[in-house]
Simulated scan of single mutants.
Amino acid sequence: MSEKLHIIPHDHKIKKADRIAQKKHKPTILWFTGLSGSGKSTLASALEYKLHQEGINTYILDGDNIRNGLNKGLTFSDDDRQENIRRISEVAKLFVDAGIVVLTAFISPFKEDRAMARSMVESGEFIEVFVDCPLEICEQRDVKGLYQKARSGEITKFTGIDSPFEAPENPEITVQTHKLSLDESVDQLFKFVSKQIL
């Protein structure tokens, strides 16, 4: 007999609709995807600051931060990358249920994983933000020194070098951080996102 048969979710009195009514904005996952160095974390942080100033309840789930805690036991193999995104998707889903706008900044290189994350919430509660920046620009930035390590073989299975990045085909919004300043990028995102959540 499966142990899952003994797991019975509790039906709590306060529902997502009650939390939305209290917070006066729609909960949403803003899923930032793009190459390392494209500006995902920087953009998510700047957008969160602007949303917070407008009274929007937010939280950021950032790749490196999550791998220091919740997912610290995972490697960068394809299977562990998928498990990394699965766990993040489940956590993001909880934030949506809590009535919060959650910003996730992960490379999340595989389309299948991003589709799985989208499927966990209701229609309209997932905004895929493609932080589009060419590989050569990301390498020039190399803010963490990771590309240099990947090129030298010190790091393997690195997205964009010896592991693929499957670019989104139909993201809700694309931000080209190599063409726009941070302020311009945030303004573009804020105008789009505010229409979806307010």
Rank of each mutant, 00 (worst) to 15 (best):
S181G: 15
E122Q: 13
D79L: 11
V96T: 12
I60T: 12
L74Y: 02
V102C: 13
A150G: 07
E139V: 10
G39D: 10
F32C: 08
I155V: 14
Q188P: 00
T33W: 01
G153D: 09
S38H: 07
T42Q: 10
I197V: 09
Q140L: 14
K50L: 10
F110H: 08
R118A: 12
I88D: 01
S181F: 04
L189H: 03
V129G: 01
A115E: 15
F158S: 06
P164K: 06
S77F: 02
L35N: 02
V131A: 08
I137K: 13
G153M: 10
S38Y: 09
V131G: 02
I7W: 12
G73E: 06
G145L: 11
L135F: 11
P164S: 07
K26Y: 06
E184I: 02
D80P: 05
E136I: 12
H12W: 10
E128R: 01
K23M: 10
K191Y: 04
Q53A: 12
E184W: 01
P168G: 06
S163C: 09
T75L: 03
N65R: 07
L74K: 03
S194R: 12
E122C: 03
I8F: 12
T33N: 01
I155C: 06
I127R: 00
N71G: 04
P27H: 06
L74D: 05
T28C: 15
Q188M: 13
E125G: 01
T177D: 08
L189G: 02
R86I: 10
A150E: 10
H6V: 11
K157T: 04
V143S: 15
R67A: 06
C133G: 09
L5M: 11
E166P: 05
S185A: 15
A98V: 05
V193T: 07
F165M: 08
Q140I: 09
G160R: 03
V143R: 09
K144I: 08
I85A: 00
A46R: 08
V102H: 01
S194W: 07
M120F: 13
T104E: 02
V91T: 13
I20L: 09
I173L: 07
